[in-house]
Amino acid sequence: KKRTSIEVSVKGALESHFLKCPKPSAQEITNLADSLQLEKEVVRVWFCNRRQKEKR
């Protein structure tokens, strides 16, 4: 499966949402994916990866 490159503006939106809520619910992920026009899975994985980055 190909990697999804996320635009800078979208990254900013994801980042600001992450600061408010690092573990969004499935519903929040769906809403966020719809508003940013990304697949739910891409948003879910982004949050997962971002939480791991926070641990490092």
Rank of each mutant, 00 (worst) to 15 (best):
E15D: 02
I29R: 01
P22L: 02
T4Y: 07
K53E: 12
S25P: 04
S25W: 01
L38Q: 03
G12I: 14
R51Y: 15
V45H: 15
A13D: 05
K55T: 09
C48F: 14
K11R: 11
F18W: 04
W46M: 02
K53N: 06
E28H: 03
L38D: 00
C21G: 04
E7M: 12
E28S: 04
R51P: 03
E39I: 01
V45G: 11
E41G: 05
L36Q: 02
Q52V: 09
K40C: 12
L38P: 00
F18Y: 13
V45L: 12
G12Y: 15
L14Y: 02
K23V: 10
T4G: 10
E54A: 07
K2M: 11
N49H: 12
K20R: 11
R56C: 04
S9D: 14
S16D: 13
E7G: 13
K55H: 09
S5P: 15
K20Y: 05
K1E: 04
E41F: 00
V10M: 07
Q27C: 07
K23Q: 07
Q27I: 05
V45N: 07
R56W: 06
V42L: 10
C48A: 09
F18I: 00
Q27N: 15
R50T: 01
A26T: 10
R56L: 14
R50Y: 01
C48R: 14
E28K: 03
V10N: 08
S25K: 03
S16V: 06
K23Y: 11
P24N: 00
K55M: 09
K2R: 10
N31H: 10
Q27P: 06
I29S: 02
H17W: 11
L32H: 03
K55P: 06
P24V: 02
K11C: 08
Q52L: 08
K23A: 13
P22Y: 04
S9L: 07
T30R: 07
S35Y: 11
I29A: 02
S35K: 15
V10I: 11
E28P: 02
P24W: 02
E39W: 01
S35P: 02
V42F: 11
L32R: 02
L38S: 02
L14P: 00
Q27S: 09
K55C: 08
F18D: 03
E54I: 02
R3Q: 07
C48I: 14
P22H: 04
C21I: 02
A33Y: 02
E7H: 12
C21S: 14
E15L: 03
R51L: 13
K2T: 13
I29G: 01
E7S: 15
P22W: 01
L32D: 00
L14I: 04
L38K: 01
K53Y: 05
S35R: 15
N49M: 06
Q52M: 07
K23M: 12
I29N: 00
A33L: 01
R50H: 03
R3A: 08
C21Y: 04
C21L: 03
K1S: 08
K20C: 04
V45S: 14
A33F: 00
Q37N: 12
R44G: 08
K40T: 10
K53L: 14
K23I: 11
T4K: 08
K11I: 13
P24M: 01
Q37K: 12
A13S: 10
Q52N: 07
C48W: 09
G12N: 15
I29H: 00
K1R: 06
T4W: 03
V42K: 05
V8S: 15
K2Y: 04
N49V: 08
Q37A: 13
E7T: 15
V8N: 14
R56S: 08
V43L: 04
K40R: 11
S5F: 07
C48V: 14
R3S: 13
F18R: 00
Q27V: 09
Q37I: 04
L32C: 00
R51Q: 08
T30K: 11
P24T: 02
K1M: 05
V42T: 11
P24Y: 00
C21T: 10
R56M: 13
E28D: 06
K11S: 10
T4H: 04
E41T: 05
A13H: 08
E7F: 06
R44D: 09
N49E: 14
G12F: 11
K53P: 03
Q52P: 02
L38N: 02
K2V: 11
K1Q: 06
A26P: 14
E41P: 00
K55I: 06
K2F: 14
E7K: 13
K23L: 11
E39G: 06
K55N: 13
A33W: 01
V42A: 13
A33H: 03
V43S: 01
